[in-house]
Amino acid sequence: MIDVLYFAWLRERIGAPKERVETNAETVADLVTELAAKSDAHALAFSDMKSVRVAVDQELTDLDASLKDAREVAFFPPMTGG
C-alpha cells in the first residue's frame, strides 16, 4: 500500500488530498499510468506531466524513480514558495 498525496491544483482536480492505493508499480511513471486510468478526474490531473512534480517519501525526485520500499508519493505543480 502506498499513500498518494496531491497538492494545489492536482488536489483540486482529483477532488481529494490523499488516497491509499494497492499497487505493484515499480516506478513513479508506472504509478502515474495506473492512477490516470482510475477516473476522468485522474486522467485530467495527469494529462500534462510537464507541469507535475513528484516527491517520494518527501524527497523531490522524477518519474524514473523507483518505488521500492516507498510509503508516500506526492504529486504537485512546480513550487511557488518565497
Binding site: 497538492f7 516527491a55 506526492a74 504537485f76 513550487m79 511557488t80 514558495g81 518565497g82
Partner: peptide, 14 residues
C-alpha cells in the same frame, strides 16, 4: 536562500 525557497520548498500560492 530566496532562490531555493522559491522553487524547491513545497509551497503553492493561490
Amino acid at each position: 536562500l530566496m532562490d531555493y525557497l522559491k522553487s524547491r520548498a513545497p509551497f503553492w500560492k493561490k
